[in-house]
């Protein structure tokens, strides 16, 4: 019993405590982040999903091409501008450009130390720029609040 002096016990106790405290969950972002706008394409005057021919999506004013000539897109995920109240997109199908503008109200929410801030969008509105030949016939907003990625927010008929 002489081996287990008070000093030994106390030191051992400290060691165990240090080991326990060191086992902390990693601080990585698992909670929510800013959701993207979810769009689904339908055939005009119908409830059938219809993919777009040769879809290009360009974000203005940076002129960055997000989608490059895809043929099979029924669902589209767009990241809205978090530092402004509107975002302009040019959607083109078979070289026919249509400009749509989304307007929204941003709400800044703190998630966690690892995730930082995210934005939830409210009161979503969309404008379609009318020109001689719109391939987009109608735009419906199902959800005016963009809070999650899992629901469809906007339906586009073409």
């Amino acid at each position: 019993m002489k081996k287990f002096t008070t000093k030994f016990i106390i030191s051992f106790f400290f060691l165990i405590l240090s080991v326990i405290s060191a086992c902390q969950k990693d601080d990585i972002c698992t909670a929510g982040t800013t959701p993207d706008l979810q769009i689904k394409f339908f055939a005009y005057n119908d409830t059938v999903e219809k993919p777009v021919d040769t879809l290009y999506v360009i974000v203005l004013p940076l002129q960055d091409t997000i989608i490059n000539g895809r043929n099979d897109m029924i669902n589209l995920s767009l990241a809205l501008n978090v530092n402004a109240d509107t975002t302009n997109f040019v959607l083109s199908s078979v070289h026919n450009n249509d400009t749509i503008t989304f307007r929204y109200i941003r709400e800044r929410i703190f998630v966690s130390k690892a995730c930082g801030y995210k934005i939830n969008f409210h009161d979503l509105n969309v404008d379609l720029q009318q020109d001689n030949d719109n391939w987009i016939k109608q735009i419906d907003i199902l959800n005016h609040d963009i809070i999650t990625d899992t629901v469809v927010h906007v339906q586009i008929y073409h």
């Binding site: 959701p35 530092n83 995730c115």
Partner: peptide
């Protein structure tokens, strides 16, 4: 070896933040 009781009073001053948006092409 010993124990302590401690308390602190402090303020935060947030200078800049960057929105966490993984879907964006360019980080905000």
């Amino acid at each position: 070896i010993g124990t302590n009781y401690a308390f602190a009073r402090f303020d935060y001053l947030l200078h800049t933040y960057r929105i966490n948006q993984p879907g964006a092409i360019f980080t905000p």
